[in-house]
Design a protein around this nucleic acid. Structure first.
Length: 272
DNA sequence: ATGACTAAACCTTTTAGA
């Protein structure tokens, strides 16, 4: 099965591109971030028309997340339980593990739009740290309950220098601070793996490029969109790629989709 | 040079993104 994450920077603007992308890339699950629309404006009919179920958690102007899926999601949770937040940033559901024996297995999928943080030392940075702490506490519990878990979305954090187009110039700036990277490593330490780095990748591979100053053309980017998988799923991950093709669209999002392929092995069966 | 571009709402200007 294939799962993907894409910060679309306004679903109202990007809907035609999302529909086109799904037609060309019929993934089983697509997590969307930055819908920038209220729940009543969510285009559920357009996704249903191309065979996708949807769960969404919108917000006016900012934030907003959704899960699109070939099979319906169950046990849907919005935001981080126990963390009071007026922003719509997280949506979670349980999906069938496609490719496994029928009814044999499921995967818990968390789609998240991590806070930007704006600038170290700002109120928004403090909120980012609190949010990251709350997320980790919750993901720890989810992992205990669901060994097959995928945490994907716009993390707004780079892992290390390899994720940054100019690590010297951007050292200590937002998305590249030690505080943010500590939280990212702590998430990984719960028992997750960065799907993208399970495979050889081209150097200077990024998932976001600044609209300004021809950032995409000059490949001045950051890798801040990630797909983390639990240890139970890790041996089943067969590919992880960043699809830059939507950046060639006329009015592109500043983020590219990230796609992971999970290939369940044959179901263990007793030999009769 | 605390910039550049894009999107939404407070809409000819500001806020936020990253």
């Amino acid at each position: 099965m294939k799962l993907a994450t894409w910060n679309v920077n306004s679903l109202g603007v990007r809907l035609p591109q999302v529909l086109d992308w799904l037609a060309a890339n019929p993934v089983d699950v697509l997590a969307l971030q930055e819908l920038k629309l209220t729940d009543d404006k969510f285009p559920a009919d357009a996704f249903a028309a191309i065979g996708y179920h949807a769960q969404w958690f919108g917000q006016k102007t900012y934030n907003g997340v959704a899960l699109l899926s070939r099979s319906p999601a169950t046990n849907v949770v919005k935001n981080i339980p126990g963390f009071d937040d007026d922003m719509s940033r997280v949506i979670t559901g349980t999906l069938a593990l496609e490719g496994a024996a029928p009814g044999a297995a499921s995967v818990r999928v968390i789609g998240a739009y991590f806070p930007n943080g704006q600038e170290p030392g700002s109120d928004k940075f403090d909120y980012k740290m609190e949010w990251l702490t709350a997320l980790r506490r919750w993901v720890k519990d989810e992992l205990a309950a669901h060994p097959n878990l995928v945490l994907m979305g716009d993390y707004n954090i780079t892992f290390d220098e390899a994720d940054v187009w100019d690590p010297v110039r951007l050292e200590g700036t937002i998305h590249c601070t030690e505080e943010e990277r500590y939280h990212l490593r702590a998430l990984v330490a719960l028992g997750l793996s960065d799907s993208y780095r399970l495979f050889p990748q081209a150097p200077k591979s990024y998932s976001w490029w600044d609209y300004r100053d021809a950032g995409f053309r000059r490949n001045r980017g950051l890798r801040i969109d990630h797909i983390l998988v639990s240890h139970a799923l890790r041996p089943l991950v067969t590919a992880c790629t960043i699809d830059k093709t939507p950046r060639a669209n006329e009015r592109p999002s500043d983020h590219a989709p990230v796609v992971v392929e999970i290939t369940p092995g044959p179901a263990p069966e007793s030999c009769a």
